[in-house]
Design a protein around this nucleic acid. Structure first.
Length: 333
DNA sequence: TCATGTCAAGGCGTC
DNA sequence: GACGCCTTGACATGA
């Protein structure tokens, strides 16, 4: 079992997703930005190894406009050695990585243009994993897409598009149950038609389900992962932020809830991505809980637990945000 | 230097 | 049909 967090490390003074506006595009700027992003990614991975955090979601912004026609810079060849070195580091330390294209990737859109752009984005993100030399257990995580008023047709359109994807993308693709539109049951239908594993999100399942108890849902999702092709089941973990709208992720891990979740998980193995606002701070605490249960290896030699501010369990504990002037209506802009 | 507006990309819900 | 929201950091710009 590996514990991870997505994209951003708040303890380091760098980011692996520096980008820029389309209007200021230049090949030189792409080259400088990718170099800086990859250097930061390497630092984050080294931090993670040093702290026993062996699961990480790589930012999809490593290459600015990676799938946009404006980007004609040959970043694949220019940075081949850097990608390979990062992949070697990941493999040497037994890490697991994933990527999560954002909401603009919609494979079941009725618009052919949107579908083509979505495929281009998946090809771009998958090619980074290919350049790293990582096998098909490194995944591309997406949602099923839009509903468009007809669930059956929406799912069928996804299945039809899936069969047109490059094989290199197909083997990396995993589909996550979401919190509003497509439940675990919808993802199971998709799996039956495509073989795509289900990336189970416990919090989304709490928001949208058909009455399946958590333990049963976990077993259904785990059964969609092929042991050699896909590896250990990946999943997202989060919980409801107290006092906030339904579906809002919590700011910092609630340890009692996490222990309860591990009880539901039982003997199932899973690599768990914490979708929690304070990133590696919660990941450290989750690892501490797992070590107490002997579910993860002991901390590396020389490891000292970082100190973080007290857990923020509700928004009232957050520092007050500076008031911003309300947006003007579009007509006045 | 600081504050604020805005950013490639989609879709749902509300009014 | 228009708009706000999702989620979020940080780039870009103007004061």
């Amino acid at each position: 079992m590996k514990i991870g967090y997505p994209c951003i490390n708040q303890s380091l003074d760098c980011t692996s997703s520096t980008t820029f506006r389309l209007a200021s595009y230049s090949d030189e700027r792409v080259e400088q930005t990718v170099a800086a992003n990859l250097a930061c990614l390497q630092r984050i991975l080294e931090y993670n190894v040093a702290h026993g955090l062996l699961f990480f979601r790589i930012s999809s912004g490593i290459v600015p406009f990676g799938s946009h026609p404006v980007n004609t810079f040959p970043w694949q060849s220019r940075f081949a050695a850097e990608f390979r070195a990062i992949g070697d580091y990941i493999k040497a330390h037994g890490m697991r990585v994933s990527l999560h294209p954002d909401q603009f990737v919609v494979l079941n859109s009725p618009s052919p243009d949107i579908v083509q752009r979505s495929i281009a984005e998946l090809v771009y993100q998958g090619s980074m994993l290919d350049l790293m030399g990582l096998d098909s257990t490194a995944k591309l995580q997406i949602h099923l897409g839009g509903l468009y008023g007809d669930r059956d047709t929406a799912i069928e359109r996804f299945i039809a598009t899936f069969h047109t994807l490059p094989a290199a993308v197909q083997v990396r693709l995993v589909v996550e149950n979401d919190d509003r539109l497509f439940s675990l049951q919808d993802c199971l239908r998709l799996h039956a038609a495509t073989g795509t594993p289900i990336l189970f999100d416990n919090f989304h399942h709490e928001c949208l389900n058909h009455g399946e108890p958590m333990a049963e849902a976990l077993r259904l999702a785990a059964a969609t992962w092929h042991p050699t092709r896909d590896g250990v089941m990946m999943m997202d973990y989060s919980s409801q932020s107290p006092g906030e709208r339904k579906g809002k992720h919590v700011s910092s891990i609630q340890e009692d809830l996490f222990r309860g979740f591990l009880h539901e998980l039982g003997s199932l193995d899973a690599d768990i991505m914490l979708e929690i606002k304070d990133k590696e701070a919660s990941a450290h605490r989750a690892c501490g809980i797992l070590r107490g249960l002997s579910l993860v290896p002991p901390a590396p030699a020389g490891y000292t637990a970082p100190t973080f501010p007290p857990a923020l369990t509700d928004s009232s504990a957050l520092p007050p945000r500076k008031a911003r002037t309300p947006k003007k209506p579009v007509a006045e802009r």
